[in-house]
């Protein structure tokens, strides 16, 4: 009896010690978090009154941008809402083209830079490091910053946007391609080397056939991301639907805001669905490494 209660008491003591330890950590993390929130709120000029005043205004805003659609006159209402449809569709088409052209160019640049950035293809550690740092620079500078510079150098219009997204895409894809290259099985490469192949032939005949499905899959994923990027690149005058969208938002042309947003969301969803279907077909038809997760970078 006393032995059992002694065990219980010991376990209880251990439990309360553990609880105290955990509570200590929780308090410490809570205090750090509270401090960070207070600091950020001060730095970010957040205040309770702003929040209380701001959120109802969001409701009013959404109410204003929603179109007047009624079931009885749906056709004319829709036509009224989408009054500028041809212009918007042509701008959306431009946006898609910007994403397409820049994805292709970025993928080509990334493709050729990925091999020197791969450590096990015999380009040497210095080359790999230099190319990797260069790719890192390309993907750390946001597209919009590149676009700001390019608008100045190449003038207003899609060309600046295409080049800006191309550079960013090259940085992201070059790094991912290099990572895929490093997973290639050495056996097939040794077979080709044994047959007397040069380094270029090893890449062409040994590496590329193995990595191609994964490459294409990443390129398609990047295309989806670039459609979103191309839709805002117009904010700085670099082409696409962005400029029109910025204009109607800044001028408070309420119904046009919702019309363009609806078209944009529809386009993005459509692109995602098509691209996902192609990716699934590629992945199921070839036994290859499947991208684990979409990169957000």
């Amino acid at each position: 009896m006393t032995a059992a209660s002694g065990t219980v008491a010991r376990i209880e003591a251990l439990r309360s010690a553990e609880m105290r330890r955990k509570r200590g950590w929780t308090l410490l993390f809570g205090a750090i978090l509270a401090l960070l929130v207070a600091l950020s709120a001060y730095q970010g000029e957040v205040s309770w009154s702003k929040l209380v005043n701001g959120l109802p205004r969001l409701g009013t805003y959404i109410g204003r941008i929603l179109p007047d659609l009624s079931l009885r006159s749906l056709g004319p209402d829709l036509a009224d809402w989408m009054w500028n449809l041809p212009t918007w569709l042509s701008l959306l088409f431009d946006t898609l083209l910007i994403a397409f052209v820049s994805t292709v160019m970025g993928a080509v640049i990334g493709f050729f830079l990925s091999f020197p950035a791969t450590r096990n293809l015999g380009f040497g550690p210095v080359t790999a490091q230099v190319v990797r740092r260069f790719l890192e620079l390309l993907r750390t500078v946001p597209e919009l910053v590149f676009a700001l510079f390019f608008v100045f150098a190449f003038g207003l219009g899609p060309m600046a946007g295409v080049l800006a997204i191309t550079l960013h895409t090259a940085g992201v894809l070059g790094k991912m391609f290099a990572e895929i290259n490093e997973t290639v099985s050495d056996r097939s490469l040794e077979g080709i080397v044994a047959a007397g192949a040069t380094r270029d032939q090893v890449i062409r005949l040994g590496v590329v056939p193995q990595v191609a499905p994964a490459f294409i899959s990443y390129v398609l994923l990047r295309f989806e991301i670039n459609v979103r990027a191309a839709s805002v690149i117009g904010f700085v005058g670099a082409g696409g639907i962005g400029q029109e969208l910025m204009f109607v938002i800044n001028q408070f042309i309420y119904h046009d805001i919702s019309a363009i947003l609806a078209l944009l969301i529809l386009t993005v969803a459509l692109v995602d669905i098509v691209s996902e279907a192609i990716r699934h077909r590629i992945i199921s038809s070839e036994v290859a490494h499947v991208p684990a997760a979409a990169s957000q970078a």
Partner: peptide, 12 residues
Amino acid sequence: RGVDVLVWALIF
């Protein structure tokens, strides 16, 4: 999710 964060920023 379909719209870039910059668009939401402009709206806000």
